[in-house]
Design a protein around this nucleic acid. Structure first.
Lengths: 176, 176
DNA sequence: TCGCACATGTAACGTGTTACATGATTCA
DNA sequence: TGAATCATGTAACACGTTACATGTGCGA
């Protein structure tokens, strides 16, 4: 299939990887659990499901007794989901897509074996360490030029990445 | 003006609030400084500038000697930018728009007096405290049901908000 | 029976992404 | 002279947002 699922698509696939859900149930999941910060509006979810269906990643299961239907992930969908989990972590991911990395991690437990999940975290960790040292180097050379608010905002970036790094380390320990 | 600028629009306005810049210079700013994680592609920046121009928030200053031109924020633009800085902080902002809050903070220094900037941080802090306690309450009641990765991902959410809170406190001290 | 939550969708719209296109200037 | 960077743009496309639309079932 030559479609690239969006992050939202992957979030849906992640949600229904074990249990089929109705469109409405999926919406509620996005609305109530603060999972990621993904949209739950009908204008987002239903078109996404249609998309995934057309791409062969999910199939619609119609109930006999009622008009309700639910969506089940296909074999294809599972493969695509797995390859998303295992995609190598790049610089740009830690720079701009931390949420997506967390989403990947949050959903990978049952489809990926422990060793590879640990590898995910280690690789995450490595990219974070590189990125943090880049930020600190930049701050050392340019920080003094920045106005107060610029400095503080920049420091926020460093702090928040350090927190992510700590979380990585803790999670690696939890898994081993 | 009945246009709602996007976050990117505001980021551009913030960048040119003191110094006029060319479209290319703006692109480079987004590309090189990791300011926010906003796009720097020509297909994003130039249409945005055209948009802002049409809305009367920036004006194009053409150089006499060359074909180069730069963009200057208008009085209107300054007003709109200010009102963005001063917009009350809501729940949804801390839930899903931390980056936007940081962007607002990072750019507000020269246009907003110190008292109001501190008020921004205090209000930010208050919303964070509420949100963190919501997350912790949820975790206490639902956490035990979550699979390991779910727990860890959820904990990440809590940790990262706590880091933001710490940053808030530190920044309030820095400003006072 | 009134209103709310359940449940599924469509249509218009704007924006960002990607890819393409063009030309000037600088430097090796 | 050729490559890289400066510099500005356009066009197709897909996605998410917002608003609209419709109907069911349940409990007060």
């Amino acid at each position: 299939m030559n479609i690239k699922p969006t992050v939202l698509d992957f979030a849906i696939l992640g949600l229904i990887q074990d249990n089929s859900l109705s469109g409405y149930a999926i919406r509620k999941m996005f609305e109530e659990t603060a999972l990621g910060s993904y949209s739950s509006s009908p204008g987002t979810i239903y078109p996404a499901l249609k998309r995934l269906q057309k791409g062969g990643l999910v199939e619609k299961i119609s109930q006999i007794d009622s008009a309700k239907s639910s969506f089940k992930i296909t074999q294809q969908g599972l493969l695509i989901l797995k390859s998303w989990f295992l995609k190598p972590i790049e610089k740009v991911d830690v720079e701009k897509k931390i949420n997506e990395l967390l989403l990947r991690f949050g959903f990978m437990e049952s489809l990926i074996d422990k060793q590879q999940r640990i590898h995910f975290l280690i690789s995450f960790q490595e990219e974070l360490i590189k990125y943090i040292s880049e930020l600190e180097t930049y701050y050392k050379s340019e920080g003094f030029k920045m106005p107060l608010h610029g400095k503080l905002a920049f420091q926020y970036g460093i702090e928040s990445n350090k927190t992510t790094l700590k979380w990585c380390k803790k999670s690696i320990l939890q898994l081993t």
